[in-house]
Amino acid sequence: MIKALGNFIAIIKGSLLTTRHFMVNMWFHTLKLLRIKTKRKGAVTIQYPEEKREIASRHRSLHRLLKRDDGKPRCVACMLCVTVCPSECIFVEATEDPDPEIQKSPSSFIIDLSRCCFCGFCVEACPEDAIRMDTGQIEFAEYTRDRLIYDLEKLTE
């Protein structure tokens, strides 16, 4: 009996809590509607496309391939990123570079972003600092999967 009463009180307390939230938030919403400026807002939501959150400096976003001074990709097709990628979404094909100092360069470099989990391992693994995930681009959703397959050209843009 006492337990039932306790439950009942808990139930009432619960609805009082939600009621309080409702009332307080509603109050601030109303103030806002009346264009009265307050410090507190009625909701914690960030209205995404209009309002954007600042991206942290250590964020990971769309990949890019860095270029040498002459515009060729810095990547030497060592395939360490291919090796480390947990999603197996990088594909690199190596070719002989005409410059004997460079020797090896990628003839194709593909990242299938529809599989990428943005772990950043590829960036960590790269011995040449040739790949980075610092473009700040986080909105690259597409309507078809094949447009998410980024090749050398798209990655060096």
Binding site: M26, G42, A43
Partner: peptide, 8 residues
Amino acid sequence: SAVIQDRI
């Protein structure tokens, strides 16, 4: 529900 949960 949104207002209760501090949403919009």
